[in-house]
Simulated scan of single mutants.
Amino acid sequence: MASSVETLAAALAEDCLKAMKATGEDRLYVEVGHVLGASSQTLEEAFLTEVRVRLAERAARDFLIRRVKESKAARGD
């Protein structure tokens, strides 16, 4: 079972990523991290981890999609 900190951090990370997409501010999560750090370093660290994990997953998924497209194009599929 996830702790309160993990649950809150995950939900906030999802909301922040949506806000980043809506505003075009790709470093908004850093600012949110500063706000959190002023009152809870524990939540700040959990939040930043959640955001970084999601951003890394997106980057890896984009890489895989590109690689498959390149492979299909090279084979003439």
Rank of each mutant, 00 (worst) to 15 (best):
M1H: 03
S3L: 06
S3T: 15
S4G: 12
V5M: 08
E6Y: 02
T7R: 00
T7N: 03
T7D: 09
L8G: 04
A9R: 04
A9V: 08
A10W: 00
A10H: 07
A11I: 00
A11V: 00
E14A: 14
D15T: 10
D15I: 15
C16H: 01
C16E: 09
L17R: 11
K18S: 06
A19R: 07
A19N: 01
M20K: 09
K21H: 04
T23Q: 04
G24H: 13
E25W: 07
E25N: 14
E25S: 09
D26Y: 08
D26A: 13
D26F: 04
R27S: 13
L28Y: 11
L28V: 04
Y29I: 06
Y29Q: 03
V30N: 10
E31S: 07
V32P: 05
V32A: 12
H34V: 12
V35L: 15
L36V: 02
L36H: 06
L36N: 04
G37M: 09
G37F: 02
G37R: 03
A38Y: 08
S39K: 14
S39N: 10
S39F: 03
S40I: 01
S40L: 04
S40E: 00
S40G: 06
Q41E: 09
Q41C: 01
Q41I: 03
T42P: 04
L43C: 01
E44C: 12
E45T: 15
A46F: 06
A46E: 05
L48G: 01
L48S: 12
T49I: 06
T49S: 10
T49D: 09
T49Q: 09
E50W: 02
E50M: 02
E50V: 00
V51Y: 10
V53A: 05
V53T: 15
V53G: 07
V53S: 09
V53K: 15
L55Y: 02
A56Y: 09
A56L: 09
E57N: 08
R58I: 10
R58A: 15
R58Q: 13
R58M: 15
A59R: 14
A60F: 12
A60K: 08
R61F: 14
R61Y: 12
R61P: 11
D62V: 08
L64Y: 09
R67E: 14
R67A: 15
V68P: 01
K69S: 15
K69P: 01
K69W: 02
E70G: 03
K72L: 10
A73M: 11
A73H: 11
A73D: 14
A73F: 00
A73P: 06
R75Q: 05
R75V: 07
R75E: 10
R75D: 03
G76S: 06
D77N: 07
